[in-house]
Design a protein around this nucleic acid. Structure first.
Length: 920
RNA sequence: GCCCGGAUGGCGGAAUCGGCAGACGCGGCGGACUCAAAAUCCGUUGCCCGCAAGGGCGUGUGGGUUCAAGUCCCACUCCGGGCACCA
């Protein structure tokens, strides 16, 4: 019977479902393992990236279960979001209908993966039974003062007709469509995530990748420094102050002017009558420009004087106050003290507008240049000068109080009540409201008197009306009934028509999986007490500063609002300590890389040289994508390179070009001298996208090769955390492997003449594979786990050919191979497992344990080096003594030849692996 | 500019502690089977010299430590990612 993946996979999937083997039920007698993989957005089709993310997660969940853990591995859909509304506008289909149709389709595709998802725990964020609790969390946040309504400069996307969070804007463009985003002053809903900035910076209790830690730290952007108050000159003692944040209070004596953001609230007060027109014009221009346009002329400083002055608190100097768009209203206090002598931007501004430059730091090894003569700012270390009480103090490269000059400056400010030590963050509060329909409604009622109140819990959820029309604007605003509502006291109220950022839905979904039907709370404390927290979370690194930061914030806020109290109580009842379990959502995080489109086969090369028979002998080869067809003797795509032979496609024929060593090779993208080795027949690998036509469809692959082969290939062909270009040719190797497993599993082994060492060898390889595969799966190293199993396959093929191992050794090895491969290729292994007479699924079988005595070799190949170079090898007993190892090494004929006429200086002996004889 | 990660055959990649570089797979080459092709099987495959035995070179570049370096240290180049007029 030959291997038929279609029958095997559908049969096994049906059997798993019938037997209900993936149902995860609380069992306090077993250790638990909560494995979570990021839930998909129901975009319509599962793509190869979903498979790449999910099948290894599934394999590891299966492995943990075989290791004896009670494993929860749930799945759901992050179902609110803009694409559904776009579909509504473009195709005139209701977002709910579109979303649910996609979910149905994707559920089927997810089943074809053969993953062990527990579908009874499925959660879908657009279901009222789900978003009731999303709303409830919002109401809780509102009542605890974490959610608030505030006016701020926010990101407005004209394309999407909604505001966006800072995290969703990259380089002034929205991260989904790449369209420009405007800055607008608007009243919106925010979550006070900045209160948690310091706690979010501490990732010491969780096992997360370094890159994610650094991205989160960068995003939070903590800076240490001081806040300094500058009196507004001529306004009297209580006429107001301009507060600035600076990381360099030590340079205060060099502050010769101030700059406010154009939107700063004090600008009106400071502006003199003479400057009024210029200031108004500048502010209007700044408001018109997008973030993008501001960034374009970064080096070209603009600004205008307000005509007003402030007093530098350290020396009572009257300094002019300017406005300029290089100061951002959203960072720090929206105002800076400018120290042109020691800040590049301030220097450029001062030179442009003829403002004073006063150096206050003398470099240690160079003469101090007078301010007027400086050609650039000095940002290095040195000694304080022109700074009154700070003169003579050392300035080093350290930040904050670790720098003696900064410490002295802060002390001076505190003593003179002119400022204080301060920490500033780049992180802004999370803008949560969206002017869109397809999201969870914000459960707030605006009272007639302007007050705000949360919709009471018993009235939740605020359900999205279904009878809506889509005409660009959110239909909630224009809906006849939705917005009109009574407030708590029966007064006239207006319902909030904004919905929540969909990241809100995904900030708590792993709690809903615990008890998706639970009606009295967001999750059942009894389930939570057993399963929480998530032990392993897998998914893409693109969520580093969005989902993963929000999720951490959410759990900390839930903890502070007391929403884990019932769970902690339930834990105590079962004798489980809650210590440290509710500060972070995900104890371990691992990211997969991204699968890119298949390599583009050719580069355009220009070859000149001589015809030599039916090939060209090249004198020069140049890579030039834009070369015209007549640029050289042979011009075309480089299709293949083998050693120094190139296959170049010219029109519809292929020309062979030989590149001798003395040919000139030019690859403009690689500087310096190039040779033939640097010619690549692929310089262009891109993300998969429909428009590029390089999308790999997993459904077609599954149909052609089977899910087991696709899973195995995805785990084998890449370094998982890295990803890389798809290679459609490579999958046959995985298919051959699965077919070999099938043949070995169905082979009726009859030993010929049994060779005892061969049996022992097979057993040793088997037990080593047990050790190796377990070790690799533990560490998320799928490729080497598969490689180890392929090696065992090779050993078994060899044993079958020789027929020289005992039946027991054969059976042990085949059974082990099926168990070890089961997490990776669940269908074929379970089919074979049952064919081999087992009653229960291989997935319920315990993970094989290796015998440590069996994996040690009796003999080892010892390497003998002379002066660090391998000169001979010899098989020696594994327990050889140091003396015997040296004697054996010296006795080797080839070693003696190398020692002849030389004096042995030292001999390094590392039995049983190596002897290195050092001679002179 | 600052921060994080990386660079190993034609390709994807492997190499617990510093101890045989290139596991495993793809691709290539040669052969068997076949009328032929596909599939399959056998052999081979880092580069260079050599008929061979064998030798030399080799993990981005340049130094260093060591009996021994892909692995440790210093300096640099390039690639990927994050942050950035961030005060």
């Amino acid at each position: 019977m030959s291997y038929d993946h279609r029958t095997i996979e559908s049969t096994q999937q049906q059997r798993w479902q019938d037997e209900g083997i993936y149902r995860a039920v609380v069992d306090w007698n077993k250790p638990k393992h909560y494995a979570l993989t990021m839930l998909p957005y129901p975009s319509g089709d599962l793509h190869i990236g979903h498979w790449y993310a999910m099948t290894p997660s599934d394999a590891r969940a299966r492995y943990m279960r075989m290791k004896g853990f009670n494993v929860l591995f749930p799945m759901g859909f992050d179902a609110f979001g803009l694409p559904a509304e776009n579909a509504a506008v473009q195709r005139n289909v209701h977002p709910a209908k579109w979303t649910w149709a996609n979910i149905d389709r994707m559920r089927g595709q997810l089943r074809s993966m053969g993953a062990m998802f527990d579908w009874e725990r499925e959660a879908v964020s657009c279901e009222p039974s789900y978003y009731k609790w999303t709303e409830w969390f919002f109401a809780q946040m509102f009542e605890h003062g974490i959610a608030y309504r505030g006016e701020a400069m926010v990101n407005w996307s004209p394309t999407l007709q909604t505001v966006l969070a800072n995290e969703q804007v990259i380089d002034g463009k929205d991260e989904r469509t790449g369209q420009p985003v405007l800055q607008k002053l608007m009243e919106q809903w925010f979550f006070g995530i900045t209160k948690y900035a310091d706690e979010l910076l501490d990732l010491s209790s969780i096992d997360w990748p370094e890159s994610i830690r650094s991205m989160q730290a960068n995003w939070i952007g903590r800076s240490e420094g001081a806040r300094v108050d500058f009196e507004i000159a001529g306004a009297g003692s209580d006429g107001g102050t301009i507060t600035v944040f600076t990381t360099r209070p030590d340079t205060l004596w060099g502050a010769t002017f101030m700059v406010l953001a154009p939107e700063h609230p004090l600008v009106d007060q400071l502006t003199t009558d003479e400057q009024r027109d210029a200031v108004d014009a500048y502010r209007a221009e700044a408001a018109r420009r997008t973030e993008l346009e501001r960034l374009e002329n970064e080096n070209d400083k603009t600004g205008v004087s307000t005509g007003g002055f402030a007093v530098n608190p350290v020396n009572r100097a009257r300094i002019p106050v300017w406005i300029a768009d290089y100061v951002l209203v959203s960072y720090g206090t929206g105002a800076i003290m400018a120290v042109p002598a020691h800040d590049e931007r301030d220097f450029a501004f001062a030179r442009r507008f003829g403002l004073d430059v006063v150096p206050v730091i003398a470099p240690a090894d160079a003469d101090t240049v007078a301010g007027a003569a400086m050609t650039e700012s000095y940002v290095g270390p040195g000694t304080m000068i022109n700074s009154g009480p700070l003169d003579g103090i050392t300035v080093n490269e350290a930040k904050g109080r670790a720098n003696p000059a900064i410490a002295a400056a802060i002390d001076w400010l505190v003593e003179h009540q002119a400022g204080e030590e301060s920490v500033n963050y780049r992180l802004r509060d999370w803008l949560i409201s969206r002017q869109r329909y397809w999201g969870s409604p914000i459960p707030i009622i605006h009272r007639a008197d302007g007050g705000l109140e949360a919709v009471p819990t018993e009235q939740l959820p605020v359900v999205l009306p279904e009878d809506v029309e889509f005409e660009g604007r959110s239909p909630l605003v224009t809906h006849p009934d939705f917005a009109s509502v009574a407030d708590m006291h029966g007064g006239i109220g207006r319902r909030e028509t904004d919905t929540m950022d969909t990241f809100m839905c995904s900030s708590w979904y792993w709690f809903r999986y615990l008890s998706p039907q639970f009606e009295t709370a967001a999750f059942d404390p009894e389930e939570a007490a057993y399963w929480l927290p998530v032990d392993v979370y897998t998914g893409g690194a693109e969520h580093a500063v969005m989902h993963l930061l929000y999720a951490r914030f959410f759990v900390k806020a839930m903890r502070d609002m007391g929403h884990f109290d019932d769970t902690i109580e339930a834990m105590a009842a079962h004798g489980r300590s809650a210590e440290g379990l509710f500060d972070e959502p995900f104890m371990m995080l691992r990211n997969q890389g991204q699968i890119l489109g298949e390599e583009r086969r050719g580069d355009r090369v220009v070859v000149d040289g001589n015809a030599d028979g039916n090939r060209i002998l090249a004198a020069s080869v140049r890579v030039d994508p834009d070369a015209p067809d007549d640029a050289g003797m042979v011009v075309g795509e480089l299709m293949r390179r083998t050693e120094n032979l190139l296959q170049v496609r010219v029109g519809d024929r292929t020309v062979t070009v030989e590149v001798p060593d003395d040919a000139v090779v030019e690859v403009p993208s690689i500087p310096g001298a190039n040779d033939v080795n640097q010619l690549k027949h692929h310089l262009d690998v891109e993300r998969m996208s429909k428009s590029r036509g390089n999308v790999v469809n997993p459904d077609l692959l599954v149909d052609q090769y089977g899910a087991d082969t696709v899973r195995t290939y995805l785990m084998f062909a890449f370094e998982w955390q890295k990803g890389g270009p798809w290679d459609s040719r490579g999958i046959v190797g995985s298919r051959r492997f699965i077919e070999d497993v099938w043949r070995l599993g169905t082979h009726e082994y009859q030993p010929g003449s049994i060779d005892e060492p061969a049996s022992i060898h097979l057993r040793r390889q088997t037990h080593r594979t047990m050790q190796k595969v377990g070790h690799e799966l533990e560490a998320f190293k799928w490729n080497t786990a598969v490689a180890a199993l392929m090696s065992l396959r090779n050993d078994l093929l060899d044993a079958r050919k020789q027929s020289n191992v005992s039946s027991e050794a054969w059976a042990e090895s085949v059974d082990a191979m099926l168990c070890l491969l089961a997490p990776i290729a669940p269908h074929v292994t379970d089919d074979l497992w049952r064919q081999r007479g087992n009653q229960q699924s291989v997935h319920l079988h315990p993970w094989p344990t290796f015998d440590p005595a069996l994996i040690v070799d009796e003999t080892v190949t010892m390497v003998v080096q002379v002066n660090g170079k391998v000169r001979d090898r010899v098989d020696v007993p594994a327990d050889i003594t140091e003396a015997d190892a040296e004697a054996t090494a010296r006795s080797l004929e080839r070693i003696q030849e190398w020692l002849e006429g030389k004096t042995v200086k030292t001999v390094v002996v590392r039995p049983p692996k190596l002897v290195n004889i050092v001679v002179t």
